[in-house]
Amino acid sequence: MKLDIQHLPGQQRFEGRHPSGVCELDYVRQGQVLTFTHTGTPPALRGQGLAAQVVEAGLQWAREQGCKVVPACSYVALYLQRHPEWNDLQA
């Protein structure tokens, strides 16, 4: 299932809406560095690749903005290990 992902810059968050809940990626921006601090997925939605969609949206936005990423969230760190195509974004 493809999520409808919204970027909420005022809240420093990406949200993926699903009828059963919201998947989120929180970040802190300091200049051109984004620290991804938290990824959350409701328990009933886990294991479906939805968190990955939200993380990809955050990474794509970081790339478009010319930002580097610090994976403070364990899920984001693991995602980056498994997807080396995003390695150029790591701070």
Rank of each mutant, 00 (worst) to 15 (best):
C73Q: 07
T41C: 15
D4L: 06
G49R: 11
Q32V: 01
R13I: 03
D26M: 02
H18F: 10
V76S: 02
A51W: 06
C67N: 08
L78N: 13
C23V: 15
V55D: 12
L59G: 09
L34F: 14
R13D: 02
P71H: 07
R17Y: 05
L8K: 00
S74N: 07
D4C: 01
L80W: 09
W86N: 05
T37E: 13
T39P: 04
M1Y: 06
E56P: 02
V33P: 00
L78Y: 08
P43N: 13
S74G: 05
G16W: 08
P9F: 02
V54L: 06
H83T: 10
V54Y: 09
M1V: 12
Q81L: 11
L78D: 14
T39D: 08
R17P: 00
L34K: 01
E24N: 07
T39C: 11
T39F: 04
L34V: 04
R46E: 15
T39N: 13
V28W: 00
L80S: 08
R82D: 12
A44G: 09
A44M: 11
Q60E: 14
P71L: 04
R13S: 02
P42A: 09
T37K: 07
D26Q: 11
A57V: 02
Q32N: 14
L80P: 03
R46G: 14
P84D: 13
A72L: 11
E64F: 00
L34R: 10
H83K: 10
E56N: 06
I5N: 04
S74D: 14
K68R: 15
G31N: 12
G66W: 00
A52C: 03
D4G: 01
G47V: 11
T35R: 15
D26P: 03
T41P: 11
S74Y: 07
T41L: 12
G40I: 06
G49Y: 14
I5V: 15
R13P: 03
E24L: 15
K2S: 13
L89A: 05
C67G: 00
V54R: 05
Q81R: 15
V28I: 15
V28E: 15
C23D: 06
K68G: 15
N87D: 14
Q48C: 07
L34M: 12
E56A: 15
V28A: 09
F14D: 01
V33A: 06
G49K: 11
R63V: 01
N87T: 12
L89G: 09
S20G: 13
S74H: 13
L34D: 09
Q6W: 05
V55H: 07
W61C: 01
C23H: 02
D26S: 07
Q81P: 02
T39E: 08
P71C: 06
A77C: 05
V54C: 11
A57C: 05
L34E: 06
H18V: 04
V70C: 10
H18E: 12
A44D: 15
E15W: 00
P71R: 05
H38S: 03
T35G: 03
